[in-house]
Design a protein around this nucleic acid. Structure first.
Length: 419
RNA sequence: GUGGGUGUAGCUCAGUUGGUUAGAGUGCCUGGUUGUGGCCCAGGAGGUCGCCGGUUCAAAUCCGGUCACUCACCCCA
């Protein structure tokens, strides 16, 4: 009978790797706490309509990547492909803006997109999302990006590049869009198949097409920064100004656009050369129209998502390893020793000390080998008849020196280990 | 959805122009040695060679199909 395997693009994160995830999450939570960002936990399943309206009907995500199904109650549901729409839905549903229009929220969890898997891309992947709602001051944008850079640097990442652009707003982007369509109309035959299709749905995407001919064609086109309205220009200039004040290095990428429809004004991306083709570790931007679009009040917002899996893959293998705390292995010789070891081992664990032992009755050699494998700091050997008190030497594994103090009971041992 | 690469032991991989009981390293188990583990020595378990079909006296090896993994396009974090 054939074995059952995991679903394509859905992977197990094995015990060797989970400490990395835990350490990163701990550090991030601490930083978010200091920046006044509170956690929100949202469902994995939402009504399909939420993403259609939020992300945009014509986007690749909605068009062909969502896990959508009809449930037994005949309702169209979707496993979330991203978190922002859900956070906004919750913000509106619970009238959070009534209590306090300003909300700084984060959420961590899995997202689902049915793409072809490759390096740094899975069908179930994990994101750390941050949303700042209720404020459109350019300082918010700068503060958000500065925190992000700080956070990634704190985690030990190097070679990061922050790129940003402005996408304009509802009033200036449509005009720019028309201009681009007009510009490309008579050059259509020089565009790739995808871009010709995009011309009708999302012509701005031609800007970041990787096809050479497309790049050449679009290079003469007006760029959005020359075209956006004075308000948007002002906002963008202030954002970059504040970034400079905060000493955050950045570069402007006039051709960067976003694949989700809700973005307005500030859009940014952080990339790393260490990631392969899927080089974006973070992406985000402002979405001043989204709250209203989803049925809430007119309320600005900005946010980002960190690709958790990609972030983890950039960290060294030993990241998050516990090295300091004591880790005891109890080896036994003989039946009666096992009995005493059993209760001592249990007492150690309840006293907050990591401890383990072997019940299989294997040779001492095998037990010691196991202790070594578990990377134990100390091995305690308990003999069958030696030492009336019942406990033999506590031995340090690392330098081989013996500590031959006989210990009378578990309490004395705990004290010894803790001193 | 499109293209390239790869599927042989738990893991990393050899396997010459098709030819007998398919190998190594590592890991695992047992024993020896060792001032009770690391080093060394001996032995052992473990594989329908991804799956199906074809060619052949004979297929891990050649051909076709299929599935999986992987990298890239696309898209995005």
């Amino acid at each position: 009978m054939a074995n059952i395997t995991s679903v394509r693009g859905f992977r197990d994160i094995l015990p060797e790797e989970t400490p990395k995830w835990q350490r990163v999450e701990e550090k991030i939570r601490k930083i978010f706490f200091n920046f006044g960002i509170k956690e929100i936990r949202i469902p994995i399943l939402e009504k399909t309509e939420l993403f259609k309206r939020g992300i945009g009907e014509a986007t690749d995500i909605v068009e062909k990547e969502m896990y959508t199904f009809v449930d037994r109650g005949n309702e169209q549901l979707t496993m979330r492909p991203e978190a922002t729409a859900s956070v906004i839905r919750s913000y509106i549903e619970h009238h959070m803006y009534e209590k306090d229009p300003v909300a700084k929220l984060f959420t961590i969890g899995p997202m689902f997109r049915r793409e072809r898997p490759q390096k740094g891309r899975f069908r179930q992947f994990h994101q750390i999302n941050v949303e700042f709602l209720g404020q459109d001051d350019p300082r918010i944008d700068a503060d958000l990006m500065s925190m992000l850079i700080y956070l990634l640097t704190e985690l030990g990442l190097e070679g990061l590049k922050l790129e940003l652009n402005s996408l304009g707003c509802d009033t200036c982007r449509p005009a720019f869009r028309e201009k681009v369509i007009l510009f490309l109309k008579d050059k259509e035959n020089r565009l790739c198949e995808d871009c010709r299709r995009r011309l009708g749905s999302n012509p701005l995407r031609v800007f970041d097409c990787k096809n050479e001919s497309c790049q050449e064609t679009i290079s003469g086109a007006p760029t959005i920064l020359d075209f956006i309205c004075p308000e948007c220009t002002g906002h963008f200039e202030k954002v970059t100004g504040h970034l400079e004040i905060l000493n955050v290095p950045y570069s402007i990428n006039k051709r960067m656009v976003r694949g989700l429809d809700y973005y307005t004004r500030t859009a940014f991306e952080i990339t790393s050369g260490a990631l392969g083709a899927q080089n974006a570790v973070t992406g985000g931007g402002r979405y001043d129209g989204l709250v209203q679009m989803l049925g809430g009040p007119a309320m600005p917002g900005i946010g980002f998502a960190i690709g958790f899996d990609r972030l983890i893959s950039m960290l060294p293998d030993n990241y998050g390893e516990d090295t300091g705390s004591p880790n005891i292995f109890i080896a036994t010789m003989g039946e009666s020793a096992q009995g005493r070891a059993f209760s001592i081992c249990n007492a150690l664990k309840r006293a907050g000390i990591r401890a383990d032992m072997d019940f299989s009755g294997k040779s001492l050699k095998a037990q010691m080998k196991r202790a070594n494998k578990l990377n134990c700091s100390h091995t305690l050997i308990i003999g069958d008849t030696e030492l009336e008190e019942g406990i033999a030497p506590l031995r340090n594994m690392r330098d081989g020196t013996q500590d031959s103090v006989a210990i009378k009971n578990a309490d004395a041992l705990i004290e010894k280990i803790n001193n």
